[in-house]
Computed example of a mutant assay.
Amino acid sequence: MTDSTWHGGAAAVVTLTFDVDAETPILAAGRRYADHLMTMSHQAYGPDVGVPRILELLAELGVPATFFVPGWVAEHRPGLAATIVERGHEVAHHSYSHRAPTSLGAAEERADFERALAVFDAQGIEIRGHRAALWEATRVTLDLIAEHGLAYDSSLMGDDRPYRLEVDGGTFVELPVHWSLDDWEQYAYLPSPQIGSVIESPRKVLEMWRAELDAMRQYRCLFNLCMHPFLTGRPSRLVALRELIEYAQSCGDVAFARCRDLAESAAADPTLLPRIPPTVTPDPGTYPD
């Protein structure tokens, strides 16, 4: 990777990403949960309390971020996306309803994808990137990204550096994710619908993420951190995030970028040759449905 340019000379690049899901992942599990007021208030904490708190932290530390927002959330909180953009950050596509693409037919997925784009277009929000709900992208997902001319996706796990994906409709950049850099596995808990079982200490999470960043600095990787404002927006967790950012800044060889800006750098990197999406054709006799 010595001739690559996507990293701009940094030992590692950090993308701070926030999935502003609000009520959508719970409603996707069943609209009956709309009457569960504890659950709905737990989710509303994200955009109503967590996002403003996160925006203040980012401003204090002078780092950019990308906020993946479902269209339903932007529609029901019409000033939210504009506020994020006005603070210098990026708003990106995170479906309309937060239903996993793997649970939808092709026509349903297209309708959901394009409904979100229509919401952002009506609000004057330019969309350059996408992240699938639950990271459960399908081949239809990738085709829609290319068809609508988006610059990047951030749903797959085929590398720990940016790479380019080639589908029939064109080529775009993949900014890969991983469960180890997601606060959901650390902090998420709800009794109904049942989500998680153990709420980890922010001290443990900070230690784990610092260790990953240090290793990624050795291998010149993308530290693509996925967080949720209703989780990381809680006080002790936000303090841990502050410590992580300050540690990265103190290293002197770590860069911070919005996903759209990193995707632009990656698209211009001649060493990132296009790959095709994973193609697996299982034998039905061996692997029945």
Rank of each mutant, 00 (worst) to 15 (best):
G79H: 08
R53A: 01
P277Y: 02
D253P: 14
C221Q: 15
D269V: 05
L165S: 08
I125Q: 02
L225I: 07
D35P: 07
T15Y: 00
L238A: 03
A100M: 02
A12Q: 10
L57Y: 04
P277H: 01
L206Q: 00
L104V: 08
W6C: 06
S97P: 06
P70C: 05
A248S: 12
A263D: 11
Y287F: 15
G129N: 03
R77P: 04
A65F: 05
V280S: 02
W184A: 01
I199G: 09
R234W: 10
R258L: 12
R110T: 01
E109L: 03
T171S: 09
M208K: 00
T232Q: 00
H93L: 15
L238V: 01
F230C: 07
P47D: 11
M38K: 00
P78G: 13
R53D: 02
A248I: 09
Q249M: 11
A133F: 03
R161H: 11
Q194W: 13
A215F: 06
T5Q: 15
L144G: 06
G124Y: 06
G124P: 05
T271W: 06
L241H: 05
G158L: 13
F256R: 03
P202A: 15
V13A: 13
Y152N: 04
A22Y: 07
S250A: 03
D121W: 10
A107C: 08
A59E: 02
D183Q: 05
Q218M: 14
R217Q: 14
S197Q: 09
L244N: 02
V91W: 10
A122S: 02
S180R: 12
L117P: 10
P274K: 12
H36K: 00
D182Y: 09
P64I: 13
L27Q: 06
S41K: 03
T171M: 02
R139P: 05
L104F: 03
T138P: 09
H36T: 07
I145F: 03
D283V: 10
V254Q: 12
M1Q: 13
I195L: 15
Y163K: 05
G71R: 10
A44H: 15
K204T: 15
F18Y: 03
Y287L: 15
M40Q: 14
G196N: 03
H178G: 12
L134V: 08
P78L: 13
V14C: 05
A74F: 04
E166H: 06
F120H: 09
A215K: 05
R161M: 06
S180P: 06
H94G: 04
P235R: 10
L272I: 14
W6E: 10
W135H: 13
P176K: 10
R32G: 10
T5G: 06
T15W: 01
L144P: 01
A188W: 01
R234K: 05
T24I: 04
G62S: 12
E126M: 12
H178K: 11
S103R: 07
